[in-house]
């Protein structure tokens, strides 16, 4: 049963611009709500779980201490 590769009957309301229809407006509202909700929840997560943690000291001196031990002896390995 082959179907022809023809155009469908046409737009439901040819004069209507889709982005101004009720369904498009509802879609826009849903997406906007989700983006705002997401930003709010991420901010909340930041305030509750991340911000209270102390900041790591990343001055060159602190990094040197973190990566390189203080010299206790001066042997060079082969």
């Amino acid at each position: 049963m082959a179907r022809a590769f023809a155009d469908p009957p046409g737009p439901a309301h040819p004069a209507t611009i889709w982005s101004r229809t009720a369904v498009a407006r509802r879609f826009g509202r849903e997406i906007l709500f989700l983006i705002v909700l997401k930003i709010v929840l991420l901010t909340l997560l930041w305030w509750v779980a991340i911000k209270p943690a102390p900041r790591a000291d990343t001055t060159p001196a602190a990094v040197a201490k973190h990566l390189v031990s203080q010299p206790t002896h001066a042997p060079s390995r082969p």
Binding site: R3, P8, P9, G10, P11, A12, H13, T16, W18, T21, V23, A24, F27, E30, L34, K38
Partner: peptide, 28 residues
């Protein structure tokens, strides 16, 4: 977020262009 994403995608896919009022589907 992933659950919401799947629900939303599923909803708009099932609506399709005809359900979204973009096009009148020819019944077949």
């Amino acid at each position: 977020l992933l659950v919401v994403d799947v629900i939303l995608m599923r909803k708009y896919i099932r609506l399709g262009p005809d359900g979204l009022g973009m096009w009148r589907s020819k019944p077949v």
